[in-house]
Deep mutational scan, measured.
Amino acid sequence: MKHYEVEILDAKTREKLCFLDKVEPHATIAEIKNLFTKTHPQWYPARQSLRLDPKGKSLKDEDVLQKLPVGTTATLYFRDLGAQISWVTVFLTEYAGPLFIYLLFYFRVPFIYGHKYDFTSSRHTVVHLACICHSFHYIKRLLETLFVHRFSHGTMPLRNIFKNCTYYWGFAAWMAYYINHPLYTPPTYGAQQVKLALAIFVICQLGNFSIHMALRDLRPAGSKTRKIPYPTKNPFTWLFLLVSCPNYTYEVGSWIGFAIMTQCLPVALFSLVGFTQMTIWAKGKHRSYLKEFRDYPPLRMPIIPFLL
């Protein structure tokens, strides 16, 4: 059985960083990364991007050496992705923050609204209902991160945790300040508006959870398998008939419901920014589905049925 020789060059300087002799033909890129780490321990596998061309796409960890368009002496180019952190850690951090930050404003801890309001309670029912909904949303997200989601990528750049936390924590503080303010004004149409908004919120939260469970069942634990998601017997998953990412559709719907319930401008802005970002993600995933699966359902749109 022939063996391969693998040289790894710096993608920027073309400097030879490592030479691997007698590499098995069936070795994966993940195994080559581990061998590279032995000579350069500062670059652990998650930091490494190996590619066939200095400006090309990163090879997948599961790619097999003998199936790549290389000879028995293969040249790979290395790029440092920077310090990495696990997706689970990032999600837990960015979701735990809003949960606790919101509660600080809800309980009106000292130095927020003035001494005479310390630890007082709002007289408006919608304020307490909003706290329950907000807390439920982020507790749900935390539990899904721990027990439901299966991540195709193990890590992301460390800098992302600061960007994500600034976004989630900042908006949580902004909306919580106004919703729990002693001078907060309840919704214009009173109980009817709150009940309608609560119904929207609850339905969308159930829908979002149902989609996450359906997506989880598509991917076996520990794998990166991708399949076309289809509706199940659960009615909340029937939205798969019309959109590629109904989890985002339901998520946006939840925040629209919360915005109607609280009639709070920061919540509306958070919903708008979230919708914009999720639309970008949904379009990317939709394109990926179309590219990977020739039999992908043609009627589906990325996030909004028939429109977007």
Rank of each mutant, 00 (worst) to 15 (best):
S135D: 04
L239I: 05
R51V: 10
P54I: 01
M175S: 04
N234K: 08
F201Y: 03
N247C: 14
Q48D: 13
W174G: 08
T37Q: 04
R108V: 04
F19E: 06
P235V: 00
F36I: 00
S86R: 02
T145H: 04
P69L: 08
I101F: 09
A11T: 07
T166R: 00
L68Q: 01
P302E: 01
R226Q: 09
L146K: 06
S223L: 15
L239R: 10
D10I: 09
I200T: 08
S244F: 03
M213T: 10
K233N: 06
A46R: 13
K116N: 13
T279N: 06
V202G: 10
F258N: 14
L20Q: 02
K38Q: 14
M156R: 02
K283R: 10
V70T: 12
H26P: 08
I112S: 04
M156K: 01
G207F: 15
M175E: 04
A30K: 14
P235Q: 15
A30V: 10
T237M: 05
A30H: 07
L239T: 03
A83R: 00
V126A: 08
T73P: 02
Q205P: 01
P41T: 03
G170L: 00
D118Y: 06
R141G: 01
L146D: 02
Y230I: 15
F162L: 11
G253V: 07
R159H: 11
L146W: 13
H134E: 06
E7Y: 14
Y230L: 12
A176N: 14
F100S: 09
Y289S: 14
I32G: 13
I280V: 12
L76I: 00
M261K: 00
R216S: 09
F136P: 15
P305Q: 06
Y113H: 08
T93Y: 01
P220N: 15
L50D: 11
R294K: 01
M278T: 09
L308R: 12
Y296P: 00
L146P: 09
R219L: 08
H153C: 06
M213L: 07
L198H: 09
T75M: 05
L206F: 13
H212S: 08
R79F: 01
G284R: 10
G82E: 10
G284A: 12
V273L: 13
Y248F: 12
W174D: 02
V88W: 08
N160D: 09
D21Y: 09
A74V: 12
I29G: 03
H128C: 04
A130D: 02
H212W: 08
T225D: 00
S244C: 12
H3V: 11
F151C: 01
L269R: 04
V194N: 12
N34F: 04
S210I: 15
K283S: 03
N247Y: 09
R216L: 09
H40S: 03
F236C: 12
L9I: 02
A199I: 14
A83G: 09
E31L: 06
F236H: 03
R150E: 00
Y168E: 07
K195D: 01
T237R: 13
C131R: 05
K55N: 09
P302G: 03
C204S: 12
Y178H: 06
I8S: 08
Y177I: 11
L239A: 08
W174L: 06
G97E: 05
W255L: 07
Y4I: 14
M175W: 02
C131L: 08
K33D: 13
P187L: 10
R47S: 01
G170K: 01
P98R: 03
F119S: 13
T145G: 03
F105G: 15
Y95D: 05
I179F: 02
G154M: 04
G71D: 10
S135R: 02
A172H: 03
F36T: 11
A11F: 09
Q192M: 14
P54C: 15
R51P: 07
L215P: 02
V88S: 13
K195T: 10
T225V: 05
R287L: 10
K22M: 07
A176E: 04
V267A: 10
R216C: 14
W169P: 05
P297S: 07
G207A: 07
E31Q: 13
T145P: 02
H115D: 03
E15S: 00
D10C: 04
K38M: 10
I112V: 10
L142T: 14
M175G: 01
Y177A: 06
Y230W: 02
F36C: 05
T276D: 14
P266H: 06
K2S: 08
P302W: 12
R150H: 09
E5P: 00
L206R: 04
Y289V: 00
Y102R: 01
R287F: 01
H26D: 11
V202I: 15
P45C: 00
Y77D: 04
K12N: 09
P186S: 12
V126M: 10
I304S: 09
N234M: 04
S288R: 09
E94Y: 01
F236L: 07
W174Y: 09
C264W: 03
S271F: 10
E292Y: 14
L239H: 08
K224Q: 05
E292I: 13
V6A: 10
A191K: 00
P305L: 03
F91T: 02
Y250C: 06
Q192G: 15
L52T: 15
P220S: 09
I29N: 04
M301L: 09
Y177H: 07
V202E: 08
L299W: 05
K60S: 12
Y289E: 14
K2G: 09
L290D: 14
S135M: 05
V148L: 10
N34E: 11
S86W: 14
L81E: 01
P302N: 00
F19R: 12
E251V: 10
H3N: 03
T276V: 01
V126I: 01
W169H: 11
N164S: 05
G154S: 07
L299V: 10
G154C: 08
S254Y: 03
P220R: 12
G170C: 09
V202F: 15
T237W: 00
Y248S: 12
P305Y: 14
I260V: 11
C245W: 05
D295Y: 06
K57E: 10
K60T: 03
E292F: 07
I29P: 08
L299P: 08
S152I: 15
Y44E: 06
K224H: 04
R79M: 14
K16Q: 07
G97S: 13
T225A: 12
T73Q: 01
R226L: 10
L158F: 11
T262D: 09
F78C: 01
T120V: 01
R141I: 08
I256N: 10
F119R: 05
H149L: 04
A30Y: 07
I132G: 07
F19W: 06
P69T: 05
K60N: 09
